[in-house]
Design a protein around this nucleic acid. Structure first.
Lengths: 346, 346
DNA sequence: GATCGCTGCTAAACCGCTTTACTAAAGCGG
DNA sequence: CCGCTTTAGTAAAGCGGTTTAGCAGCGATC
């Protein structure tokens, strides 16, 4: 009842284990007749090499790990990761690799890392002070970072967060907005500082706002989900200093803001302009379609996988220049006429 | 430079490998002093057990595989799978399991299965005649099927596809529609028949349409993507026998139909009613919000994982009753007045 | 006829861990 | 003081493959 092993095949075919192994991995080393016979017997017995045994002895598992700093249910609520996986997946398939999702187990990403039998890791949005990074170093497994700071040891794939954010803020500024709300990304994991990504985007917003002399924006941290965006909207000032433009660090949060605003009777974009970040596909179909900062997510995944595969081959690689972002203007933003008038009008 | 092994720790601590192993897996078997010492040395050396070696020797890898019949880039374009993973992930995290994505490698799902070191498989939308199923049987790895026919060997998690489809069609019928287009799901993999899911949904649509004596619908197969939905719309008859209601087997395709229709100047729902299937979150934000058949996707994932975990414990389980579906009526469907009048009016 | 180089195959070591079976020493009741 | 159970630890046998080193046979070469 138990699994067919290489020894079973060997004895059934009347050859050594070596011969069976050669039949699969190095067929030229066998005579034609025995090759056929071994393969035949293996097929009959339904033999397939045990992956773990293979991994142990070959020192490669054929798998790369995607390190996810949060629970799968929260991360996969954001289409961002689906897009990223599309990019990663393309490269994985091209190189015959499978993709292991590694979320924190038992609250600990470190212990999850240990358990994972992979040839390399792609880690998503880790803070530079996350302890998981030490473990990664220690293990000596090739790693590439996405959306966090690189190090000499590990290349990082990033986008021009600051530039994107700046463009978003300038867009709203040009439309006449002065009162802003900024929806900040939460830290990747509890007990850890906010991610470099969040910091850079915030810097971009601030830079634009400051240089235009806009009043200090209200900032609220919002998770990357529609519900979180909705909650964020509810916590915004509604009368005095009411923001007329909101800068969200994710499309999901922006969508949440829009629906909460609409539910409360506001019109988008007439009463409230909102701009997102990421440009996930869904942003094109929302009502109204979302103005947002586009980043090439699929490309990011593809690049990360490519870099990792290079590193796995032992090729040293440097972090590439940040991928460029661009503002895509749709219909969730519009000119803000005059805030006093508008307040009187309500 | 190479990895720290258990033997290194053992000799550094002046104990046997067994002792080191016990220190981690069976601490009670060691005296307090040695336990501390071994753990200390291990920490200093940065020792972590090799996962493949562990998996080999323990006969468990701590990961479950998600068998995906198509390329990751096509599957992850559909939020359905994100939702499913949220459900799976919840259970995985609860049981300290990681999740391995297993797409066809080199065009072959079978070979990908072999490579995967997992304790169990969840397979997505496999046709009953898919060769991958044989491999699964042969391997003797616990498996649960999602969206395909169960077998004595493997339980399957399904939803009431037929009932859901029927409800969708009846809804349109009640609104006065007579001319229908049905967007059929493509087969999971080339060279394979269409999936039981697609068949059941089609049956549901037909049942409702037939019993209402509606004219034969036009059916077109559309992939599960917005682009595929848009193409499907383009291939629909535009004048004679123009459908006024479209029944899509996925929300993504439905969204594609809507945008293509709107791009061609049609109003939704006034000129064309469309209903989707799945009720992915995005369907609530589209313009107009999509009428669709809701299925409990996260729950489906959760259930599949739960069943698999049972099976992995050696507990025999039966396929559960199909999960129920429900029609959620939003604004992409409306009453159809009279087709002749309408055509004249245009 | 000894030597050489192939071809075709195998024995055995190894990958790094777990676990079973066993031993030596210590504790303990009588 | 003696047999008996615990306690603390070890040696060695797996787990199921891959791979190195080497051996036997054999026709070609000199």
């Amino acid at each position: 009842m138990s699994r067919v092993t290489i020894a079973d095949v060997a004895s059934a075919a009347g050859v050594s284990k070596t011969a069976v192994s050669f039949a699969f991995n190095n067929p030229k080393r066998l005579g034609h007749a025995t090759l056929e016979r071994v393969l035949g017997v293996a097929e009959d017995l339904g033999y397939m090499p045990h992956p773990a045994a293979r991994a142990l002895s070959m020192r490669r598992s054929g798998t790369i790990g995607l390190l996810i700093p949060q629970r799968l249910s929260t991360v996969f609520a954001n289409p961002f990761v689906s897009e990223l996986i599309q990019g990663l997946g393309e490269q994985c398939e091209e190189h015959d690799l499978t993709l292991l999702l590694v979320p924190p187990l038992d609250g600990s990403l470190e212990s999850a890392i240990r358990q994972a039998s992979v040839d390399g890791f792609i880690s998503l949005g880790l803070s530079p002070d996350d302890r998981a990074l030490e473990v990664l170093d220690r293990l000596g497994i090739p790693t590439v970072l996405v959306d966090s700071d690189g190090s000499p040891a590990h290349p990082a794939i990033n986008i021009d967060d600051e530039g994107g954010a700046e463009a978003a803020a300038r867009h709203l500024l040009q439309l006449g907005h002065r009162q802003f709300a900024i929806l900040v990304l939460p830290p990747a994991r509890a007990q850890v500082n906010s991610t470099p990504t969040a910091t850079r985007r915030l810097n971009g917003y601030r830079k634009a706002l400051d240089s235009a002399g806009a009043p200090k924006p209200v900032t609220v941290v919002a998770g990357i989900s529609v519900a979180a965006g909705a909650r964020a909207f509810d916590s915004l000032p509604k009368v005095k200093d009411r923001p007329t433009g909101v800068l969200a660090m994710s499309d999901m949060a922006a969508i949440g803001v829009m629906s909460a605003a609409q539910a409360s009777g506001l019109r988008i974009p007439e009463d409230l302009s909102v701009v997102g970040f990421d440009d996930v596909p869904a942003s094109a179909w929302t009502n109204p379609p979302l103005t947002t900062v586009r980043q090439p997510i699929v490309e990011k995944g593809r690049l990360a996988a490519r870099f990792l595969i290079q590193r796995m081959k032992g090729i040293k690689v440097e972090s590439p220049a940040p991928l460029s972002t661009s503002l895509v203007v749709r219909n969730s933003t519009s000119r803000h006429i005059d805030s006093d008038l508008q307040i009187k009008g309500r």
